[in-house]
């Protein structure tokens, strides 16, 4: 057993014990340890990846929502605008119709009034004429009750005729 020459016995022992240690550690320690390490690292990587994906999805969802909202707003504006237009048109039409109706009613009324007026006038004229006749008749009858009166009248008429 010198310092620089390996002892045969120790060489053999070292081969056996280190070999055994290697095999035992390989089966009992390194295999489960490396496996667990890999599984854990994989799961951490998976978790990180899925977090990243979730984040991406969130932003996508968010922008989608934004887009949807924007679209809804535009659509709402369009609908409102159209509705306003339609209501305007309707109102305009209604107004026009109403004024036309009124116009017509007024014209009709005026016409009717005129006709009534004319009728009334005519009747009034007839009445007046009839009354005049009656009055005249009564007047004449009263004035011409005496012969003297009749004579003077005739004389007057004759005078007028002569004058002409």
């Amino acid at each position: 057993m010198e310092l620089l020459t390996p002892g045969t016995g120790l060489l053999i022992w070292q081969i056996i014990i280190f070999g055994l240690l290697f095999i035992l550690l390989r089966v009992l320690a390194w295999k489960p340890i490396m496996q667990s390490l890999r599984i854990r690292e994989d799961s951490i990587q998976d978790a990180l990846d899925s977090a990243e994906n979730a984040k991406l999805e969130m932003t996508k969802l968010h922008s989608d929502n934004q887009k949807l909202l924007e679209e809804a707003r535009v659509e709402r504006d369009a609908i409102l605008k159209q509705a306003r237009h339609v209501s305007d048109v309707l109102m305009e039409e209604a107004k026009a119709e109403a004024s036309k109706q009124t116009e017509k009613m007024i014209t009709d009324a005026r016409l009717a009034i005129n006709i009534e007026k004319k009728a009334a006038m005519a009747e009034v004229k007839t009445q007046v004429a009839a009354l005049s006749l009656q009055i005249t008749e009564k007047l004449l009858r009263k004035n011409l009750e005496s012969d003297k009166a009749q004579k003077s009248l005739i004389e007057e008429f004759v005078k007028d005729i002569n004058l002409n």
């Binding site: 310092l3 020459t5 390996p6 070999g19």
Partner: peptide
């Protein structure tokens, strides 16, 4: 620090 030990390790 024994040369037989290191020899075997290097042999592996």
């Amino acid at each position: 620090g024994n040369i037989a030990v290191t020899t075997v390790l290097a042999l592996f």
